[in-house]
Amino acid sequence: MRNQKNLPGLRVISFVLGLLGWYLVTEYTAIMLPGPQAVLQKFMAVAQSGVLFTDIAASLRRVLTGFLLGTALAIPIGFVMGWYGVARGLIDPWIQFFRMIPPLAIIPLAIITLGIDEAPKIFVIFLAAFLSSVVATYQGVIGVDRTLINAARVLGAGDRVIFGRVVVPASLPFILVGCRIGLGSAWATLVAAELIAAQSGLGFRMQQAQLFYDMPTIFVSLIAIGVLGLLMDRVVQWAETRLTSWQERI
C-alpha cells in the first residue's frame, strides 16, 4: 500500500493505454471489432438522436424503482429478523433458498404471472435488491456489540430506545454495504432482464443491435452500462463514508 498518492495519475495512464491498445488491436490485426473512432461516432449519433438517453432513462427508472422498493422492504424485515429470534427462524430458510435462485431465472415465471410490461422486470430487480439487503441488515443487527446495548441499558434505556439509538446506528454500516451490493446485483440483473424481455433500455438496444450485426451500438451500450454502474456505486460509497464517518477504520 505504498505510494497511495500516485493512484489517480496511474489511473489516467491506464485509461490511455487501454484506449491505445483497443485502437491498435482493432486497426492492425484481423480481429473484427469496431475501433474507438467507430464507437465514438455511434455514440455521437445516438446521443444526438436522443435514443441513448431514453434507453438510459428506461433502464435507470427500472433499476431505481426495484432497488428502492427492495431495500425499503428489506430493512424493516432485516431488523425484525435480527431482533426477534423467532422471526429469523421462520423467515431465514426462505431467504436462503431464494438467494440460491439467480433472479434472472424468475423471469419466465414473472412474465407469465405479471405480464410483459414493466412489472416483471421491476419485480426481478426488487428481488435481487431485497435479498442482498435483507441479509446484510439482519447480520448487522445480530452483530451489534452487546456491551453497547448493556451500556445503554444501565443508563436507563428501554427496548425502544436501544433499538432506535443503538441498534439502528450500529448496524447502519452493514446496511449500507448491503445496499451497495444490492444495487450492483440489481443493475447486473436488470440489463440481463432487458435482453430477454423489454421494448426499451440498454439491454434491449443491444439485443436489437445483435440482430443487425451492429457492433458499435453494442459497444456504446456496454460502455454506458459500465459507466452508469460505476457512478451508482460511487454515489452509494459516498453516502456510506458520509454516514459512517464515526467508524474507526484501521
Binding site: 456489540d145 456491551t147 453497547l148 448493556n150 451500556a151 445503554a152 441499558r153 444501565v154 443508563l155 436507563g156 439509538r165 443503538v166 446506528p169 450500529a170 447502519l172 464515526w246 467508524q247 474507526e248
Partner: peptide, 20 residues
C-alpha cells in the same frame, strides 16, 4: 430486578457510542 440509572457502570472496553 433489572438495570437502572441509579447504578452507573463503567466497562473495561469503554463501550462509548462511536457515532455520538
Amino acid at each position: 430486578r433489572g438495570p437502572g440509572p441509579d447504578r452507573g457502570v463503567i466497562f473495561q472496553q469503554y463501550a462509548l457510542f462511536p457515532w455520538l
